[in-house]
């Protein structure tokens, strides 16, 4: 996994050197790297993890933020105000600090005190156990919602499923990649044989653009959140496109506690619900009426 090469020019030299010292087995298993002011960076792996021999003070955090922004913080304000920065290689840095509104009404994140770099993983075959649920008996794509807690592998599954639907099922797949996590921006090779990716805008807006311009049979999007996303998904269904999406929910029952998901469920937007557990395993699959299969 070349994540260390991907992030080579986006980390201060001290942190880069500390990460370079990790052995290859540990490096391949890294899921997240967490930085907090006043603490040593925490490297989270599948087997647990540890800390780096660097202390992050205020100056080091400022240096880290400048490096993550590619020395162009003024160009990253909009993204930072949404709490994340896309990084090369499809990785993502989430952050916490002071969120304030300027006199012109625009939101700004300043005084960052925590950063969490999530390492993107392409696991070929991650969607293998659920591929029979992605397409019906007549070869038509189903609308599927992948549910699970944070960090359980929803994005990894979505990524592999999108490539499967494009390359093996022969469907026209369009991806609305709001946070540049699903596929690399500016990739030099094709994402997939029939896979089109739009990156970086508002998810609902991107879904609308894709419906109008790319004639997708399947639309893939990650982390459904607000009512705008729900409306866009309902529009997609009315236009005849299947939707493959993910959402944070700790099980099918938790959907009822999230009004947006409950509304989509009540509207019958999804034919299948795939629930992932915290250990990246598929715990259950449900049909449109939320009966366990």
């Amino acid at each position: 996994m070349p994540w260390r090469a991907d992030l080579d020019d986006r980390l201060p030299s001290e942190i880069r050197a500390a990460l370079a010292a990790l052995n290859q087995k540990t490096a391949d298993d890294v899921r997240e790297i967490r930085f907090r002011t006043g603490c040593r960076p925490e490297v989270c792996t599948g087997a647990g993890g540890g800390t780096l021999p660097v202390l992050i003070g205020r100056a080091e955090m400022d240096e880290l933020m400048a490096a993550l922004c590619g020395c162009s913080m003024y160009a990253c304000e909009q993204s930072m105000a949404r709490g994340y920065l896309p990084l090369p290689g499809g990785h993502r840095a989430g952050m916490c600090g002071r969120l304030e509104r300027g006199p012109d009404g625009t939101a700004r994140m300043s005084g960052v005190t925590s950063v969490c770099i999530r390492i993107a993983r392409y696991v070929q075959g991650a969607s293998q156990p659920v591929r029979q649920h992605l397409i019906d008996g007549a070869g038509r794509p189903r609308s599927v919602l992948v549910l699970g807690p944070p960090g359980c592998g929803k994005t990894t599954l979505l990524r592999d499923a999108a490539v499967y639907l494009s390359d093996e099922a022969g469907l026209q797949v369009s991806v609305a990649d709001e946070r540049e996590e699903l596929f690399l921006s500016g990739a030099q090779r094709a994402y997939g044989k029939r896979l089109d990716v739009i990156i970086g805008g508002d998810k609902a807006e991107m879904i609308g653009l894709l419906l109008r311009s790319m004639a997708p049979q399947v639309i893939v999007c990650d982390e459904i959140g607000g009512w705008g996303d729900a409306k866009a998904i309902l529009d997609a269904a009315r236009c005849g496109a299947a939707v493959l999406a993910s959402a944070h929910a700790d099980g099918i029952e938790a959907m009822a506690g999230r009004p947006v998901l409950a509304e989509l469920g009540a509207a019958g937007s999804f034919e299948r619900y795939i629930v992932l557990g915290a250990a990246h395993e598929i715990t259950a699959v449900y049909d449109r009426e939320r009966r366990r299969l």
Binding site: D62, A66, C69, G70, C71, S72, M73, Y74, A75, E77, G102, R108, S110
Partner: peptide, 10 residues
């Protein structure tokens, strides 16, 4: 200071 702060500050 270039690139090390937000737009207004820059």
């Amino acid at each position: 200071e270039l690139g090390r702060c937000g737009l207004a500050e820059q």
